[in-house]
Design a protein around this nucleic acid. Structure first.
Length: 354
DNA sequence: TACGAGTCAATACC
DNA sequence: GGTATTGACTCGTA
């Protein structure tokens, strides 16, 4: 695109609505029966798992590093390409053809080892079959171990090396496993909090970095997300973008939904974003957007107001299990937040209750 | 050196 | 078979 590298484009990109982008991508993929693996590998250069994660839990733009923004810029470009679906369909056909060809040749030569069973490394010739066995088996933590780790986390999210050692020996795990678990858990809790904070429509401006926004209960009262505060974004850049502003209003209007949201309720209407996402649909969109540029999505959501444009909807595919999971997570987070709030209100650490 | 961010890839789940 | 989850890893940064 315009001879710019993707990094340059990311650097120059205005704020994008990551939620709207992923929503649209999911739509296009399902509508055209295209898998995450194919999309990830050909468009984003990511694996299926990463794509799944990105699509299910997009971080708000302002929370992303340059590297983290890259897939969203790629998705945006892909959505703006009128032939995007065709191209991916072609790739799908080619893959199928190649697969059939491989199957045929492996069937015709009974002496040939079916590389499908040997993994990509072997296919690429980097590993011999013998070496396959050297691969580290994945550690799968049992429910009791997870429970114990979670309890330990609630007591100390940043355990000392000594605590880690103790945990590891008590649970019969390697210390590196315990360390990794804490890293991952912190990171994922943080990500869940981003989502929760967006969902509760409080909006996090750049100024709310000093702690969990949920703790502050600031909502948007400071004028950040609901007062139209401008950051780098210009009014001109918002033209024809109804997206951020409208959703924004919706988000502010729905502040009283927070309680329900925190309880894991699904209170976001996917329809809210219809017009939003249609701005991604390119020419022919019914939501009146004139001559949108490359990154036309959400200048509307200035950095201070971005989160509220990224309202994560539960999505139509949510099954009861997902909802339960969400409820559990929300409850767990609220529990943690509650304890942190209590702790924060007591000056003497000895009074902190965890 | 510890941490966060981002990602891979094995596994679980539907 | 496609998608979601999650332990492990790399890399950049303070």
């Amino acid at each position: 695109h315009s001879g710019l590298s993707i990094q340059e484009m990311v650097a120059m990109s205005p704020e994008l609505d990551t939620y709207a982008i992923t929503k649209k991508v999911k739509e296009v993929l399902t509508d055209n029966n295209l898998g995450q693996r194919l999309f990830g590998e050909t468009i984003l250069g990511l694996t299926q798992g990463s794509v799944s994660d990105l699509l299910a839990r997009p971080k708000p733009w302002h929370k992303l590093s340059l590297k983290g923004r890259e897939p969203f810029v790629r998705m945006q470009l892909w959505l703006q390409d009128p032939h995007s679906v065709e191209k991916l369909m072609d790739m799908k056909r080619l893959e199928k053809k190649a697969y059939m060809k491989r199957r045929l040749s492996s069937l015709s030569d009974s002496h040939t080892v079916d590389t499908a069973f040997l993994g990509p490394d072997y296919v690429q010739g980097s590993l011999s079959p013998g070496q396959q066995h050297l691969k580290k088996p994945r550690v799968v933590l049992g429910p009791e171990e997870k429970e114990a780790l979670k309890k330990a986390y609630q007591q100390k999210p940043y355990p000392s090396p000594k605590t880690i050692e103790e945990l590891a020996s008590q649970l019969n795990l390697k210390t590196s496993t315990v360390i990794n678990w804490f890293h991952n858990y912190r990171s994922r809790i943080r990500r869940e909090l981003f989502i929760e904070e967006i969902q509760s429509a409080g909006g996090v401006g750049p100024g709310s970095e000093g702690g969990s926004p949920s703790l502050r209960g600031s909502k948007s009262g400071e004028g950040d997300s609901c007062d139209g505060t401008e950051s780098e974004g210009t009014v001109e850049a918002r033209q024809g973008l109804g997206l951020g502003l409208e959703d924004h209003r919706g988000a502010c209007k729905d502040q009283d939904m927070e309680a329900e949201s925190e309880a894991g309720g699904s209170n976001n209407s996917p329809a809210q974003l219809d017009c939003t996402t249609s701005s991604l649909a390119g020419p022919g969109s019914s939501c009146g957007q004139g001559g949108l540029g490359l990154f036309s999505l959400t200048e509307a959501s200035s950095s201070s107001s971005a989160p509220s444009t990224n309202i994560p909807a539960p999505g139509p595919a949510r099954n009861p299990r997902d909802n339960n999971l969400r409820k559990k997570k929300a409850a767990n987070l609220n529990n943690i937040i509650h304890r942190l709030e209590k702790a924060a209100s007591k000056e003497d650490p000895s009074e902190w209750e965890f």
